[in-house]
Amino acid sequence: MKSSASFSPAACRNLKLASLLLGGSLLLAGCAGNPPTEQFAVTESVVRDAESAGGTQYAAVEMKSAQDKLKQAEFALHDKDYEKAKKLAEQAEWDARVAERKALAAKARKAVEDAQQGVQELREESLRNAQ
């Protein structure tokens, strides 16, 4: 018995295109469904480092922004809005990096000022001793 089903070249092309579109959609949906756990681990580490460096004291605005964005990212993660969670976590990471750099720079400036003050005090003491 001969099969009566035969496909034209155009029908085969349409079937291939439909298969590719469906496969691509499933692939994208699969990627969008993965929680950004690695990004969260990096962000949490960077925020802790910034806090340890004195970010809360020397870069309060940036530190607050990093902490707020991380909290918003946690809410988005809980709501399974992984794209938003990743974006917020990345922003929090960079805010924390800025806070850490500002804190380190402020500490370095303070150390230079303290050293200059120490040199000035030594000069004054040596002048007193010389008289």
Rank of each mutant, 00 (worst) to 15 (best):
E121I: 03
E44I: 00
L70Y: 05
S65V: 08
A59G: 03
L17F: 10
K110A: 11
C31K: 10
F75K: 14
R48T: 08
E51S: 10
K2A: 14
D95C: 05
C12H: 13
R101Q: 12
K86D: 05
A53N: 07
Q91V: 06
V61F: 09
L20P: 04
A105L: 10
S25K: 13
T56L: 12
P35E: 14
R128Q: 12
L122F: 04
G23I: 03
Q116G: 07
Q131V: 09
G55Y: 00
K110L: 09
A5Y: 15
Q67E: 10
A53D: 07
S6P: 04
K87Y: 08
E44S: 06
L104K: 08
L22R: 03
T43M: 12
F75M: 13
T37A: 12
A85I: 07
R97M: 06
G54W: 00
S65R: 05
A108M: 11
T56I: 12
Y58I: 01
A92H: 02
R48W: 08
A5F: 13
E38D: 14
R128M: 13
K86C: 01
Y82W: 07
D114H: 04
A66G: 04
S19G: 13
W94Y: 15
S4Q: 09
E51I: 04
S4T: 08
G54I: 00
E100A: 12
V98E: 05
E125V: 04
K102D: 05
P36I: 00
G33Y: 14
P35C: 09
Q67A: 04
A10D: 15
Q117G: 11
A115E: 05
L27D: 05
Q131D: 10
G23S: 08
Q57S: 15
Q91N: 13
K2T: 09
Y58P: 00
L77T: 03
K69F: 09
Y58K: 00
V61W: 01
A108C: 06
S52K: 12
A89D: 02
G23K: 00
K16C: 06
L70G: 01
Q57L: 14
K102E: 08
M1N: 07
K107P: 02
N34Q: 15
S65W: 06
E62R: 06
Q72V: 06
A85K: 02
Y58G: 00
S126P: 01
N14E: 14
M1W: 09
A103S: 06
P36L: 05
L17H: 12
A5E: 14
H78P: 02
V42K: 06
E44M: 00
E83I: 09
D114Y: 00
V47G: 01
A73I: 09
L77G: 03
M63Y: 03
V112N: 11
N129C: 07
N34M: 14
A60H: 11
L20M: 15
L28T: 04
D95E: 07
G55A: 05
